[in-house]
């Protein structure tokens, strides 16, 4: 597991529910949309996470030092959880390598948000990570 991401996940695991809500909202507030230099609307549907009710799009690129960099767009302005997870992933995966991304356990969704997520919500949030992993596998394949 990637150290920086693991530290964030553990941070969430050790807080009470109210603190968790506040931190998640804070992460959601810091969400940055994909810049136009990476993608412009209308976004390609193959970047859209299936079954995510918030309409999340994911882009993965390799930066100048050969590490992956991720960008996101959340269609639903009310998709607070999705925005929070995207921000956590962006921060937690900074300077990580391609292979490490594939090893991320999607269980982090439950460790961050709790185990009482609805089925639709957990499928959607897990789908964001799975989409990133598929894109990274493709980047490795093509490199």
């Amino acid at each position: 597991m990637i150290d920086k991401l693991e530290k964030i996940v553990e941070f969430f695991e050790n807080m009470d529910n109210q603190e968790k809500i506040e931190y998640l909202i804070s992460y959601a507030d810091s969400f940055k949309e994909v810049p136009e230099t990476i993608a412009s609307k209308p976004y390609a549907l193959d970047k859209k996470v299936e079954y995510c009710e918030s309409g999340v799009y994911v882009w993965s690129i390799i930066n100048e030092v050969g590490n992956p960099r991720f960008y996101f767009y959340v269609e639903n302005p009310h998709g607070v959880s999705a925005k929070a997870l995207c921000s956590i992933l962006e921060e937690g995966l900074e300077n990580t390598d391609l292979q490490s991304v594939i090893t991320i356990n999607t269980d982090i969704v439950f460790r961050i948000f709790g185990y009482n997520l609805s089925m639709g919500k957990n499928l959607g949030l897990i789908g964001i990570i799975q989409m990133m992993q598929r894109q990274v596998k493709k980047l490795i394949q093509d490199s």
């Binding site: 809500i21 506040e22 918030s54 607070v80 959880s81 009482n116 609805s118």
Partner: peptide
């Protein structure tokens, strides 16, 4: 009552309470 239970905590109609369908 929302799909995303976090949404209420970002701001809600004054006086509103939240009822979460899952919990």
């Amino acid at each position: 009552s929302n799909e995303d239970p976090l949404l209420y905590s970002t701001g809600h109609i004054p006086g509103a309470v939240q009822i979460d369908w899952t919990n």
